[in-house]
Design a protein around this nucleic acid. Sequence first.
DNA 1: ACAACATATCACCAATTGGTGATAAAAATA
DNA 2: TATTTTTATCACCAATTGGTGATATGTTGT
Lengths: 207, 207
Amino acid sequence: MEKKTEAKSLRNKEKSKQKFLAAVEKILHTKGFSGLKVNDIARTAGLDKKLIYNYFGGKDGLIDEYIRSQDFWSNVKDESGETLINDGGKEFSKTMLLSQFDYIFKNKNIQKILLWGLIENRKSLRKLANDREENGARLFEGITDPHFKENAKRYRAIIALLISGIYYLDIYAATNDCTFCGLDLKSTSGRSEIENAISFLVDKTYE
Amino acid sequence: MEKKTEAKSLRNKEKSKQKFLAAVEKILHTKGFSGLKVNDIARTAGLDKKLIYNYFGGKDGLIDEYIRSQDFWSNVKDESGETLINDGGKEFSKTMLLSQFDYIFKNKNIQKILLWGLIENRKSLRKLANDREENGARLFEGITDPHFKENAKRYRAIIALLISGIYYLDIYAATNDCTFCGLDLKSTSGRSEIENAISFLVDKTYE
DNA sequence: ACAACATATCACCAATTGGTGATAAAAATA
DNA sequence: TATTTTTATCACCAATTGGTGATATGTTGT
């Protein structure tokens, strides 16, 4: 390479790979998992399907790389810095849950991938789940386990229920127009009811 | 028809239809949604695929009939009869949630169909969701709404979180070996932690 | 026995699927 | 400029997909 990767070059491996990854995302949103066929992906990317085999080793390799490219849990970490952990992680848990409820509702990518994790058992999906576990482990082991002591596991179970409930409700709202327990999960009023419930339950848990 | 549907007859329309429905179920368990191809279904049923078009109008008709054949919410109704509703539905809610947690864990059919409802938007799936809503409406309108009065909607939101959490955790446990919030959802100890959390949260809600 | 009907199979179709070797075209190197 | 390497396209393949008309076979009624 004489001149480093000119933007004007018509043939650019990296750019082509990105086109394939973008095509996967687009098809995932429009047609869902079942629409992910090599021919469609190549057509959507505007490139030849042979390149999928050359660059990713096949459809599975491409899909794995797409999943790996989505690093969702990095934004969950500790955005609030080192603020008040003297409350046993109460406020942190609350804001974490509420922000997840909002974030996942707006992010169609994570919805699809969470759903994917309930259907398939890909290596790349497992890694994502493990990342989430490791990320949560820091909260539990560092803050809430010492606070709840013998009840530490019950706190984990409560958070598990709330997190997974948030997942399910957000995905349900995205793919379904029907209500859930009589609540319209797409309306702001329905969603604020859920938010109030989350706050309420966390408060009660720390009583 | 002289003699009504002999069991020994080699050609029996109803029995053949049942074979197709059983084949759908089997493939759903072994290969998942993506494995539901007419050729496979027919091969699994041991019959010709033409019959799928003759009897059900096509693959979609067959699948819809399979979904309709699964009436899950009938067992949720009021199994406890008319016992203690003077507690505002507290015990009823608790046992309902706990039995759902156990029932869905053991019933692979409902897991798959719940998952299906998060992916597709079939008419038959919508109907199933509506059945669930109507079923729940009886509990809410008849018992808990009058009890919680101005907080009725928050109670609904709490139940929505718990129900959907139960759904997600059970499905997650079935397709994933990984833990969730550090809890092993397949072990009895992990599951009893969740059960304790459900009881705890319902109790706190009624305080 | 016979016909009439219901039930099921078969052969075949067009379109789509995943996948590959040969080849063209652009870019880097000399 | 000529040469080599990278990047991308093309034509083609076998297998599978959904779907159908013609046909065979079992069952029922006369």
